[in-house]
């Protein structure tokens, strides 16, 4: 596997409005460090995440995509994250089946109180993606800046 010292990955984090988005805020107010190249997109619930969003993120230059939602049982809308869990499990399995690195996608449950977990998750995910190198298998060459 190619290890590139100068490679800074672009990470897209889809965060549920009711938990991990607030968790990201909390990690900020607590001055916890997480990489600046994590781009957070707020969604109303983890089950709002259309699989197309994930693929589009890769197309537009993401090297890793992570979904953060409420812990099972804690969904603001009662059951949204249970559906999201099934969908993402299947989607990620298919991506893996098509040879797209399994580690490039991740689901993590982060509550509004878990600022530290949010920062740690992002640090860890960024490290993983840095190790993996740039996204080549789901890129769109047209979107590369020449």
């Amino acid at each position: 596997m190619q290890v590139n010292e100068t490679f800074t990955p672009t990470i897209v984090a889809f965060c549920c409005n009711w938990c991990s988005y607030a968790g990201a805020d909390l990690s900020g107010t607590n001055r916890l460090q997480y990489p600046a190249n994590v781009k957070i997109i707020r969604i109303p619930c983890s089950c709002r995440l259309n699989p197309m969003f994930i693929l589009r993120a890769f197309q537009r230059g993401a090297d890793g995509v992570i979904l953060c939602g409420c812990h099972p049982g804690d969904c603001h809308y009662t059951t949204g994250n249970y559906y999201a869990r099934r969908r993402m499990t299947l989607l990620f399995s298919l991506l893996d089946f098509m040879g797209i690195e399994r580690e490039r996608t991740r689901v993590e449950w982060v509550s509004a109180a878990e600022g530290a977990k949010f920062a740690a998750t992002m640090n860890d995910f960024t490290q993983t993606i840095t190790r993996l190198g740039p996204n080549r298998r789901l890129e769109d060459l047209r979107c590369k800046v020449e």
């Binding site: 099972p72 049982g73 059951t79 249970y82 559906y83 869990r85 099934r86 969908r87 993402m88 499990t89 299947l90 990620f92 399995s93 893996d96 089946f97 399994r102 996608t105 991740r106 689901v107």
Partner: peptide, 23 residues
């Protein structure tokens, strides 16, 4: 249909191994 249902203890995405033994 499985995509219109869920259980409280559904496996997490980490279950995906696709033939590779326990990652």
């Amino acid at each position: 249909p499985p995509m219109l249902a869920f259980t409280l203890d559904d496996p997490e995405a980490s279950i995906i191994t696709n033939g590779r033994d326990g990652q």
